[in-house]
Nucleic acid binder design. Structure first.
Lengths: 198, 198
DNA sequence: ACCTGAACACCGTTCAAGT
DNA sequence: ACCTGAACACCGTTCAAGT
């Protein structure tokens, strides 16, 4: 991909190549396709080569999930740009649910217990970057109950994402889903504003 | 357990014994401990014996998850009994989050993609039983937007469960968690009542 | 009808060895 | 410093065979 070696494989940064192969395998074949041997095979390297770059399979999953959180944060930020202040929280909420819809396998991996369990600090910081702006907005809607507002907003959009991903809500079509999400978000935000103190 | 056989193992209902061993292994060692060989070993039977009762590993996981949904439904129902109508939705919401806290591994399995993906009809019906009363209550709070109210309520409690399970909310102590959940629920239900039409 | 035992392909992981 | 190759223990699954 980078230079013009005859063999063509081991392109300088094997770690990066493995993570990218992981992202590809994940979206194609689901989460179990994301094995150390499989990812090594996809890159054209021996089965034990990944161990130079990842301590074990969990570390590979965490690296792929981290990439997911970076994209997630970028998507949330982009959704908040060029939007009037009053509608920003709704826009980002919709983007949260939208990301889960467009990257179902990646989203699932990001919140999978196999990955979120341990205290991988790189992962945690990537994840918290993704949430920060959403949390700031939610808190600003209701400063007197900042933590409640933040947690509730986050829980709502996360729960919506999961329920919709698992097809646990009966929907007529794509437009129906978007309408449902938009309405729930706008009611919820209105509720945040209307109930300043508990 | 049942009769007084000398060997003591193959007690009539191997299937049931395997599911119970699965529940035990799950709460002890997490979701990966729930393997066909491991569960067979726990019951004292050959590695291939489970295949008389489960088509594959997924089917075992689904059977354990189904048991989880039965208990879940019972817990939600119990929480709604002997509670004034006006507080029932909040009580059941708290029970939803409480169940996830008390049965973290089981809760995770129940909503794991490994299990919820396929169209296992037995599982689906057990799951929908669990939700029915919660959905009915949420819809009743706001009949003009029944579906929105139902989905939003469900998303909120489910999202809360997941976030708290993964320790993604900073909490001072146990009481702090209960207070946070209670406040969020009471605000949310108040919002449902206050915003009848979108 | 239900279970055992041996076998197969596969995986994560380790380790000595190569360049 | 980074990768290969062989090896180990383990798993899900299959199948012939036993009672």
């Amino acid at each position: 991909m980078s230079t013009s070696e005859p063999g063509g494989y081991h392109h300088g940064d094997l770690r990066r190549a493995l993570v990218e192969a992981g992202l590809r395998l994940l979206t194609e074949g689901g989460a179990d396709s994301l094995g150390l041997r499989e990812v090594a095979r996809a890159v054209g390297v021996s089965a034990s080569a990944p161990y130079r770059h990842f301590e074990n399979r969990q570390a590979l999953l965490a690296a792929v999930a981290r990439e997911g959180f970076l994209r997630f944060a970028a998507a949330l930020d982009a959704a908040g740009r060029d939007v009037p202040d009053a509608q920003r929280l709704e826009a980002m909420g919709a983007a949260y649910v939208g990301f889960s819809r467009e990257n179902p396998q990646l989203f699932r991996l990001m919140f999978s217990p196999e990955v979120s369990k341990d205290a991988n600090s790189e992962l945690m910081s990537a994840a918290s970057t993704a949430y920060r702006s959403l949390a700031a907005l939610a808190g600003a809607e209701n400063p007197e109950a900042e933590r409640e507002a933040t947690v509730a907003t986050w829980a709502l959009v996360h729960g919506l994402s999961v329920l919709l991903l698992d097809d646990q809500v009966r929907l007529n079509d794509e437009a129906d889903r978007d309408r449902l999400v938009a309405r729930i978000l706008s009611r919820f935000v209105a509720g945040l504003r209307a109930l300043p103190n508990g």
